[in-house]
Amino acid sequence: MQQLINHIAAHPIVPVFYDDDVERCISVLEASYKGGIRVFEFVHRGVNALENFEVLLAYKKAHFHDLSLGIGTIKTAELAKTYAAIGADFIVSPIVNPAIAEETLAKGKLWIPGCLTPTEIALAESLGAPLVKIFPGDLVGPGFVKSIKPLFPNTKFMITGGVEVEESNVKNWLSAGATALGLGSKLFQNTGANTGAANAADELASRCEKLLSWTKK
C-alpha cells in the first residue's frame, strides 16, 4: 500500500472519468497515459461502469504496466468488495464508511475516503486511511488544507473538485499541503473527450503534460 501511495505522490495529477462508451474510455485512458498520467480514477457512475472498468483493467495490464487504475464513487462495502476482487488498484469514496474500510484497508487495499471536515478526516484516520480525498475542494480552498495539515501530519490529502487547469491553482493546492489533485470535468472540457472529436486525444495529452509540469518544484 505504501508503494502505491508513493506512486500517487510521484504522479500527483489524477484524471477522474466515466463514459458509457468503452471505446471512448480506452481512448481517454490512452491519451492521459500519453500525457504522462500514471494514476487514473474511473468512476462508478453509469450502467456500464463495472463492465467498462474490467475492459480498462485488461487494457492497462496489456499496455500500461506502470499505471495505477482505481475506481471512484464507491459508497457501499459490497461495491468495494466487487471492485477489489476484480483488481482495482485503489478504491475512492465520496464518504467515510467504516464497512468499506473493512473490505479494503483491513485487507491491504488502498481506500481513499472523501472528507470535508476535520471530524471526518479524524474518523478516516482512525479507520486507517493514509490518504483522504478533500471533496468538493472548491468549497474550502487551499487555505483549508494549509490550516488542517498540521492537525493531521501523518495523513495525505488528494483534492477533487475545484482544481483548475491553470498553473497558479495547481501550485497553490500543492504548496498548501496537497499530495495529489483529482480533475474531472475541468480537465476534459473543450477537449472533445466526451464527444470523440478527432483532436481530442492530442488536446487531452497536452493538457495532462502541462498539469504535470506545474507539479514540479
Rank of each mutant, 00 (worst) to 15 (best):
Q189L: 10
E166T: 05
A124P: 11
K61W: 00
P150L: 01
K146Y: 09
A178T: 01
Q2L: 11
G196R: 08
I26K: 14
D66G: 07
A124W: 09
N52I: 06
K171L: 07
R207T: 01
A77M: 04
K109D: 02
N6T: 12
G141D: 04
G72S: 08
V145L: 15
M1A: 11
F64Y: 15
F17L: 13
I37K: 02
W214M: 09
E54L: 10
P142D: 01
A62Q: 15
A84H: 12
A176E: 05
G137C: 02
V39Y: 14
S27M: 13
E167P: 04
K171Q: 15
V47F: 06
N199T: 13
L127Q: 02
L212M: 12
G182V: 09
A106K: 15
D202H: 07
K186H: 14
A62F: 07
G177M: 09
T215W: 07
N194A: 04
S175T: 13
L67Q: 05
P15R: 08
I159Y: 06
A9R: 12
W173E: 04
L50D: 09
P150T: 03
N6H: 08
Y18A: 13
T76H: 10
A9T: 06
K186C: 02
E167T: 02
L67I: 13
T195C: 00
R24L: 14
G182I: 11
A31T: 06
K216S: 08
K109L: 10
A200E: 01
G36Q: 09
E203M: 10
A99D: 14
C115P: 00
V92Y: 11
R38F: 08
D89C: 05
A31C: 09
L131I: 07
K61R: 13
E166L: 07
N199D: 15
T82E: 14
Y33P: 00
I121T: 07
